[in-house]
Computed example of a mutant assay.
Amino acid sequence: MAFLEGPSLKQAEVIKQDIGEGPGDLERGVRDLRSMLAASPYLPEPDSVEKQVLELFIRGCRMDMQRARNKLEAFFLSRSRFRDLYEYTSLSVPPLSESCKFMDVVTLPKLTDEGYRVTIGRVRPGYSDSCADITDVTRAVLLVSDVRMHDETLIAGDVFIWEVSNIRASLAAKIMAAASAVRRSIYLAQAAYPQRMKRIHVVGARPFLASSLQLMRSCVNEKVRNRYYIHPKVEDLLEHIPARVLPEEWGGQEESIDTLARRWRNRVDDLRDYIHNLNDISNATPAPILDNDMYGTVGAFRKLDID
């Protein structure tokens, strides 16, 4: 069985209709992206990028090839520009193993009825303050996102759940102190990953997190900003997400978050060579940084002001 379950045949047809994918469109799109890679002196060689990754960008951009080209360009150039966010390739060894003692980052195996993929970020109870390094948490989230791209299939969109009821007041200052890393990761998720954000659920947020939530909301576009849902308890999620998708401790039928988190840590280790290669091909011919522009390259990804 695949690490992430794909859609049913009926779901797949509905998703393809929603994104406007017709017969032969995906193959033509892959050829288009490979041509773009071949034409740029700053991007990887076309044959070094897996077809699966290219297909995710095309479908994640609803078959809009200009958007797909822009995002693919951003994906590789941002890895070269912000190497500090991508330098670690394991959740099992420090420093990211320490961040896993603070937060579990888990993408759930099953899709919702709409075909959405759900990813959980759960702050663990009783964490040590020394483990709560927000920059390392953003690195862990991006690492799971990269590994997920290797295993992901046709989906209709993304749903994120941030369960933060265990956060202590002392962490709020750390989040604000790491605002630059938080902004970078959120902007990268929008500009450089083939996501179609459908909903963001925040569970158990206490009043002292108001400024942190405002920081995250300020980093997304208005459409995503209007898709935030705030819940006092995890049981409220069952009104939005089927029980068969959610973990057992949240009233669902899926394996526990602890079990899934272990599986993800193992999966990241299994694909360490894949991640190393992704970093290597991104850094092979880094583009120059010109003045305040992030990159002066072909395409629309000329400036991403996220410092």
Rank of each mutant, 00 (worst) to 15 (best):
residue 81 R to P: 02
residue 107 T to K: 07
residue 97 S to L: 04
residue 113 D to V: 15
residue 115 G to I: 09
residue 104 D to W: 11
residue 73 E to S: 13
residue 90 S to R: 06
residue 110 K to C: 09
residue 37 L to R: 08
residue 77 L to H: 08
residue 130 S to F: 05
residue 111 L to V: 09
residue 70 N to Y: 07
residue 45 E to Y: 08
residue 62 R to Y: 06
residue 119 T to K: 09
residue 81 R to I: 09
residue 64 D to Q: 03
residue 78 S to D: 11
residue 38 A to T: 07
residue 96 L to K: 01
residue 121 G to H: 10
residue 102 F to I: 05
residue 67 R to D: 00
residue 94 P to W: 00
residue 65 M to H: 08
residue 123 V to C: 05
residue 48 S to K: 14
residue 57 F to K: 01
residue 53 V to E: 11
residue 56 L to M: 11
residue 62 R to S: 09
residue 32 D to N: 09
residue 36 M to E: 10
residue 92 S to A: 05
residue 44 P to G: 10
residue 110 K to L: 11
residue 81 R to F: 15
residue 80 S to D: 13
residue 36 M to I: 11
residue 35 S to G: 13
residue 52 Q to H: 14
residue 70 N to D: 12
residue 105 V to N: 07
residue 105 V to K: 03
residue 93 V to N: 03
residue 41 P to S: 14
residue 79 R to L: 05
residue 67 R to I: 00
residue 67 R to V: 00
residue 84 D to K: 06
residue 72 L to K: 02
residue 71 K to A: 03
residue 107 T to S: 10
residue 60 G to Y: 00
residue 72 L to Y: 02
residue 83 R to I: 02
residue 66 Q to C: 04
residue 99 S to E: 01
residue 120 I to Y: 06
residue 69 R to L: 13
residue 63 M to G: 00
residue 115 G to W: 05
residue 106 V to Y: 07
residue 51 K to E: 13
residue 37 L to P: 00
residue 98 E to R: 03
residue 91 L to V: 02
residue 103 M to P: 01
residue 121 G to K: 06
residue 109 P to L: 15
residue 96 L to F: 01
residue 121 G to E: 06
residue 90 S to G: 06
residue 38 A to I: 13
residue 40 S to Q: 12
residue 127 Y to F: 10
residue 100 C to T: 15
residue 108 L to S: 08
residue 135 T to N: 04
residue 32 D to M: 13
residue 88 Y to C: 02
residue 64 D to L: 01
residue 104 D to M: 10
residue 65 M to T: 01
residue 132 A to L: 01
residue 37 L to D: 08
residue 85 L to M: 08
residue 34 R to A: 13
residue 54 L to C: 05
residue 123 V to I: 13
residue 126 G to R: 06
residue 115 G to S: 14
residue 81 R to K: 14
residue 90 S to T: 09
residue 41 P to R: 07
residue 111 L to D: 10
residue 130 S to R: 07
residue 40 S to E: 14
residue 128 S to A: 10
residue 105 V to A: 05
residue 97 S to M: 04
